[in-house]
């Protein structure tokens, strides 16, 4: 699942991962992400990984991770997307329970490399 308020970013993650034959679910912010997670849960779907942005409207990445860590999908690895200037945010994401991070902008290979590390 990719959670990001930028349609461009969502589309590119979707593109790269779909090419690699993953199924991608898109959410446009933390709240939307949580709603999608609830849907997945009620459908009994297994989730391999969550990729989330930090700076988002409604519910930001940290808040989102905090919520995820309370729910059914708390063991799903979370990857935080940050920009160069957001070192502190990266730390917050880590503190909240993210398993890794990726600095935007990234190249398709970088994304695949990280995802492959987490998803078996």
């Amino acid at each position: 699942m990719i959670v990001d308020d930028s349609a461009t970013l969502r589309a590119s993650v979707n593109f790269v991962l779909t090419e690699a034959e993953y199924t991608v679910i898109q959410a446009k912010d933390g709240l939307d992400g949580l709603a999608k997670l609830r849907d997945l849960q009620s459908a009994g779907t297994k989730l391999d990984m969550i990729i989330t942005d930090i700076n988002m409207p409604n519910l930001d990445g940290i808040g989102f991770i905090n919520e995820v860590k309370k729910g059914e999908y708390k063991y799903v690895p979370i990857l935080v997307l940050t920009t160069e200037a957001e070192n502190a945010k990266k730390m917050e994401g880590k503190a909240a329970g993210a398993s890794g991070w990726l600095v935007k902008p990234f190249k398709p290979e970088q994304l695949l490399w990280v995802v492959k590390k987490f998803v078996r």
Partner: peptide, 23 residues
């Protein structure tokens, strides 16, 4: 906050499509 977020997203997106002048 909203203004900041818009610009932030714009920067991130332009980076993804390698629009360096904009980034």
């Amino acid at each position: 906050n909203r203004v900041f977020r818009s610009v932030h997203t714009l920067k991130g997106s332009s980076g993804m499509v390698e629009f360096s002048v904009l980034t």
